[in-house]
Design a binder for these strands. Structure first.
Lengths: 133, 133
DNA sequence: CAGGATCCGTTTCGATACTG
DNA sequence: CAGTATCGAAACGGATCCTG
């Protein structure tokens, strides 16, 4: 999780991914950044899942250490940090969409399929935008 | 994890998925079933990541409860149980492949890209096979 | 011997109170 | 408002025991 001690052999690439995502929260933070326009500590805290402050801080730290997000100070309010996805983080979009499609097919959720389709399209565009830069 | 207590609102389908995969082990078991032809308790134990017996048993139980795997007794050796993926479990193939592609791009792993491509093709065929039945 | 349950010491998580 | 300290709860690893 924190990417510190990894006693596993990393032969299978899934292990590398699980070291970052083998927990409940990291993917939710990425979802918030990717699809919900959240970019500050406070905005993440406000997500309906109710992450605890210490967990949020530790996950943000480990996501940053993994090169999935970056931070820069808010030019307006210097106290705030603005979090953003890197290219590496944006490239997770297909996986997030895959999870959502799978879960909407097999688990009961309240997300309408039209919204899901919109998110899928948007995810594609996000990645294209970054690749153009 | 065990899908028992879920104090979260399930508005976003990702939550449904994370309740099953928000841990280190479930996806590895699914990988073993999907790409490595493992199908018994003993074979899972032998995976290089070294899951503990109690953890393996609890994950198998929760994956079965989630309808992702099934069990049946081995017709040859009655002591053994044969585990297999359901359609719901096989439909996770694109996500597994997505994780592997992402991780091979950004994390150093020892899996050659040619093998990755083979697995990707195979994942597609697995799903087709089940859908034909 | 295969599958799996139980116990126990250790690590990690998470809710809340608290600090700069 | 962002982040840390505390401390109980849960998960983990490993050994051992149980059952067919």
């Amino acid at each position: 999780m924190s990417g510190k001690k990894a006693p596993w052999r990393s032969g299978c690439p899934i292990n590398a991914a699980l070291e970052i995502f083998g927990d409940r929260w990291s993917l939710l933070i990425i979802r918030d950044l990717m699809f919900r326009g959240r970019r500050t500590y406070r905005e993440f805290l406000a997500s309906e899942e109710g992450i605890a402050t210490n967990i949020l801080a530790s996950r943000l730290k480990s996501l940053k250490a993994s090169g999935i997000i970056t931070t820069r100070p808010d030019p307006v309010d210097g106290r705030k940090q603005i979090y953003a996805l890197t290219k590496k983080g944006l490239d997770l979009a297909p996986i997030l969409v895959g999870f959502m499609e799978w879960a909407s097919r097999y688990e009961k959720t309240s997300m309408p399929l039209t919204l899901l389709r919109r998110m899928k399209e948007e995810a594609g565009k996000l990645v294209e935008d970054v690749e153009r830069q």
